[in-house]
Nucleic acid binder design. Structure first.
Lengths: 327, 327
DNA sequence: TTGTAAGCGTTATCAA
DNA sequence: TTGATAACGCTTACAA
């Protein structure tokens, strides 16, 4: 910066101003500085800038796993907003470990990020303490919670389960199964299941415990889940798959077994994506506003970083049951 | 840090040492410092540390689009390695724009990242200049290039196309079609297509230009591409789909039209994923070592950051043609 | 093994 | 509209 200043015949401070607040610099001076910057190939040092101003434009995101395509939409939403404001996105995965999450949070606080998004609503006490002390914007997502550390931006998984229960019951299905990824340490799936089973019970439909499965991820796993359910109870008339691409795997399995969907058995999915729409038959599913969650989260962080007061603690972005051919 | 030092009855420098090089501090002192850190809830300021040491543990990745699930594997590979070494990952997307890429590169250089991975091998002259001047580790991936800016870690898309040409020709297919996403500004697909068509020509198989398509992304788009190809030439006996999930969409379309795969028409895909394996029939495809590319890229960056000399300019991680039921 | 002093390259603040 | 000066919170280098 000093070199640029010398080249332009001004002080370093004027170079700094020319970059961050051009309208506070005289046009002629500005022009000279700009020329000097271009000529020297100067790239400012944001590390020094951040230290001096005690602010960064870094925003962190921690997801349970990066392999899961499901986060791509939210990441894109965050990225679109952050880029517009010249903020930077840092991403990492906790591997579904709260300890790892705590470690990452500490590292991000050390980097002095201005905001952090957690796709998770359970945390170690130490993680919560660090976040509360740091006073940075913290967005919890993945599941709407009543008492967020700072702000919750999501939809209610309990409501999702309940909505799907209504949907299936409303269509007349009575012998119903459920399969999801393991719910241990995953409050999102746990809530979705709870909402589903509780609402069905209220509607007078009991789900046999043997028909409530937890399985691994992947299409193959969905196929096996379907197989197990129809073998356990050949009269099952509908299954709700919560999470991953399990439902698609189940439909493939139905094709192999010659089970008509939905004539013989209905299949409902959650988390809409390209694949769900193009299966034969296309799958009834719940669409989550993942992109919008990313956008809203980033907007809140940027607003706070710009010094605005955001008077919200909970942002419910809802969801949508999309009925297609499979129910 | 001063507060912690006071609490522990040592100097700030000793606190710094206790954190970064514990074995250079006397055990008793170390213990006192650790207690003081825990007691005060001190979180070090890496911004200040980075400025002082003139090093960061930040690594940047720029991909054309974050929505595309195809990057998830590479990101996970990078993340796994970086996390192990306490490095941080920053991610953004260029939206397939070289201008945007240049802007992002400048921003990352300003952040003083220690390495940057570009999923792209074409750049603006200015971007190249910035990278060369900055002397940070720069990994280009997506396509193997002979003259990388710094290091190229990838596989050869030309070789991928050629290998698939050999595969189809070897199985006796003679009337062959090809469809990909638009190749404009995408040297990866351009090379793959070139390798495919060139090798087929060498094998005495001419591909009619009307059977070489460029289509948009998504399953639906693959369905339409297949439709157009079989309507243009009802005798086509094989189609190679390069990119995205086009091939899966094509197989869905074949099912709808009652065209047996591969009896009536063979379908080959590229970029193996869960879906490809579980289609009926499972798809013949090319597997790219995406996770490994992420791992290797991160390893090279970390090694350089640790001061090691890495004596490579080009790392060819290869690929694998996986024959399944669709050819 | 520990401490002292001098930066690192910006920006905040105040003065001119 | 511009400039001088003093931080920002660490680490490097060297001394004790």
């Amino acid at each position: 910066m000093k070199d640029v200043a010398r080249l332009a015949g001004v002080s370093a401070m004027t170079v700094s101003r020319a970059m961050r607040a051009p309208d506070t610099v005289a046009p002629a001076t500005l022009e000279r500085v700009r020329r000097a910057i271009a000529q020297s190939g100067y790239v400012p040092n944001r590390v020094a800038g951040s230290l001096s101003s005690n602010r960064t434009t870094l925003v962190a995101l921690i997801v349970p796993s990066l392999r899961n395509a499901l986060y791509a939409e939210m990441i894109q939403g965050m990225s679109d907003v952050l880029m517009k404001h010249d903020f930077q996105l840092m991403i990492s995965d906790s591997g579904y470990s709260l300890q790892q999450e705590e470690k990452l949070i500490a590292a991000y606080v050390a980097q002095r990020v201005c905001g952090i998004v957690l796709h998770n609503t359970r945390h170690t006490p130490q993680a919560v303490r660090i976040l509360k002390n740091s006073a940075l914007t913290c967005i919890e997502t993945g599941n709407l919670v009543a008492n967020p550390i700072d702000i919750s931006v999501s939809f209610s998984n309990y409501a999702v389960g309940a909505a799907m229960a209504e949907h299936l019951a409303g269509l007349g299905y009575r012998r119903i199964g459920f399969a999801s990824l393991p719910v241990r340490g995953n409050e999102r799936l746990r809530e979705r299941r709870k909402g589903f089973l509780t609402r069905l019970a209220k509607l007078g439909i009991a789900v046999r415990p043997e028909l409530v499965l937890e399985v691994g991820p992947g299409l193959e796993s969905g196929s096996r889940a379907l197989a197990r359910i129809v073998e356990t109870d050949p009269k099952v008339d509908a299954v709700f798959f919560a999470g991953d691409v399990l439902a698609a795997g189940a439909v493939f399995e139905c094709q192999r077994r010659g089970l008509d969907v939905p004539g013989r058995i209905a299949v409902a999915a959650s988390d809409d994506n390209d694949l769900m729409q193009h299966m034969i038959p296309p799958l009834t599913t719940v669409r989550f506003p993942r992109y919008e969650i990313g956008v809203r989260s980033a907007e809140l962080i940027v607003a706070r970083a710009m010094g605005q007061e955001v008077g919200v603690r909970t942002v419910d972005l809802g969801f949508e049951v999309i009925r297609r051919g499979s129910t």
